[in-house]
Design a binder for these strands. Structure first.
Lengths: 340, 340
DNA sequence: CATGTGTGCTCAATCGATGTAGCAAGATTG
DNA sequence: CAATCTTGCTACATCGATTGAGCACACATG
């Protein structure tokens, strides 16, 4: 393919190309970065240099290029995990949208570790990122402060912060609608609606608080008592959820509001191992294509990732750094009854 | 937090810190990158400069640093998608393992687009990546050639290539074991084992070819005819799989080998909408926690992501660039019968 | 033939961090 | 007390690409 084989293993630079082409490094640079017309380089030279660059397998040294340039066009994102549908979709779409806007996306994954989150943010600043999207961070304000001092704009996604614009799901509305749906399916399938269990999340997590508010609102409007004793928030982990369920005194028929797909894994595993499926109906905040096929599952509230990222990029283009908050509606998926 | 607020919005450099601290840029540099002891800078000066750097919210300019340094320690990975468990887990673990080895991981997602794959590889070379892990690429050899010319080592993951070491799942063994499992469950549940359907993948995809070989081997050893007419390879998409199933003449009871979780989405959706669950048993190559809970599912062959990445990093440390191939065994998950 | 206008380039400073070579002052040795 | 060593720094070239300033030549104009 590329015929750089016989000479040095080192990567060719514009100086090497200039030597071969009998031109100056400046000319080569402008030819390769597309500014040659305005620098009045002849088409013949441009063509020759371009050909030699291809032959030599030249690729610009971004470190050198970015060091010199005014702007880096790098946009960073930190994300807690890749391995679930929600954050996976966020990462994937973020990359595509950034590229479509001529930006260089750089994503890193922080394992829900606050120290790693901060280190990752520092690394993004070191990469000369111009903007950083802080997704699902434990302490977004600490990162926002650091970035502000370094002149890097930040935007919070998924979990809000108080120092920069935040784009989050309408957790209240989504949870209220999902709760309504579960209650209505209890009425249809079991003849009456009783207060639901709420499983998963943490008591001080912003999203959990909002979802719980929506959960309660739907109970109130249905004339049901707010089921305080049935609200269990042992974190998001599957095992904790299964443990918590094991400790409950469960009636013959009941409904559950599950706070995330991660939690859902534990809930459904425990139910499958311990209870007949027709005793329970549940709904889950967040979407997963396989979870949607589980027979007990009556509905899922999908967070609208494309709409959220559109808001993120709009905020970036709009240029406001005020700590505004944008709530993006969720997409409610009622699920059909599956045969048993 | 950081008290850079009143002065310029520009990021502080070692020259700014040097001025404030009354030291030279060289001293500041060596203090901040940890080489100050061997350059005989006093502990007092080091402490003072470190404090000022923190106060000013200093973060090293990686572009400048990497330009000057001999080695970048950057390791790149290109990956087709983030939004399924397999590639999500690969990306996440790759980052963690790279960091644990003192490397800078940079990952980018190529949407299964051959041109984007190549562009992404070029971008990695421009970032001065020393090594590139090419995951699930359509044309790994083209990328390997380009990287070789630029002096960048490559390793293929998931799909093998002929120009660099390749780490792939033992698709043959995994498929054979999974097929055995499905056949045995057919015998247990339905009283007899009949040849299975094989759904998903592409006829020329290396992994599909190998899995089909394992599928056939298990049929042969069970004394069953190789079921050529039941092998359907319309790609991996859920919709194609559902369409294909709709066109089949299905017996009262049967089994299916599903070639990926992506395909599985379509298969299970179609079955759930169209057939009583107890007519079918299926197994799936690849693992997903929710798919594992579906009642028809009797087993999944999980690709051993940690072991594969261990092999990748071993190959990097070992320093061989020969096009060897390492097959990593899959983890077979037999699934319990779920209540109906 | 002096002056002006365009064309097609080159020169050299610059971005920020690194690292080799070396300098000045004090301490130690013979 | 001169020679040597040690300590604690600084000066400067360098990495590769970019870009404002400017040079040399061709050709046209009055």
């Amino acid at each position: 393919m590329t015929e750089n084989s016989e000479n040095s293993a080192r990567r060719p630079t514009i100086y090497d190309l200039a030597q071969i082409a009998g031109a100056s490094p400046s000319a080569v640079s402008s030819i390769l970065n597309g500014t040659w017309r305005k620098r009045r380089i002849s088409a013949a030279t441009a063509e020759r240099v371009t050909r030699i660059a291809t032959e030599q397998g030249y690729a610009v040294n971004l470190q050198a290029s970015l060091l010199r340039r005014e702007r880096s066009h790098i946009i960073g994102m930190i994300v807690p995990k890749y391995d679930n549908r929600y954050f996976g979709a966020i990462a994937e779409r973020f990359e595509a949208m950034a590229r479509a806007r001529g930006l260089f996306p750089v994503i890193t994954c922080t394992q829900r570790d606050p120290d790693l989150e901060f280190e990752a943010a520092r690394e993004m600043v070191s990469y000369q990122a111009e903007t950083l999207v802080i997704t699902g961070a434990t302490d977004p304000d600490r990162i926002a402060d650091f970035c502000a001092a370094a002149g890097v704009r930040t935007i919070n996604l998924d979990l809000p912060g108080s120092k920069a614009p935040s784009v989050v799901s309408d957790n209240f509305g989504g949870a209220r609608d999902l709760t309504r749906l579960i209650l209505s399916r209890l009425r249809d399938d079991f003849g009456e609606a009783a207060p639901l269990w709420f499983i998963g999340g943490r008591p001080h997590d912003h999203n959990t608080v909002e979802r719980l508010r929506g959960f309660r609102a739907a109970h109130v409007e249905a004339g049901l008592p707010a089921p305080e004793a049935k609200v269990i928030m042992p974190g998001y982990s599957p095992d904790k959820a299964a443990e918590a369920l094991a400790g409950q005194d469960l009636p013959p028929r009941f409904g559950i509001f599950v706070n995330s797909t991660i939690t859902m894994e534990g809930v459904v595993r425990w139910l499958g191992d311990n209870l007949a499926m027709d005793r329970v109906r549940l709904g889950c905040f967040d979407w997963d294509p396989f979870a949607a096929l589980l027979p007990q599952n009556v509905g899922m509230a999908e967070q609208d990732v494309p709409a959220m990222l559109q808001q993120v990029f709009d905020a970036i283009a709009g240029g406001t750094d005020q700590p505004t908050r944008i709530d993006v509606p969720c997409i409610l998926h009622p699920l059909p009854a599956r045969d048993s």
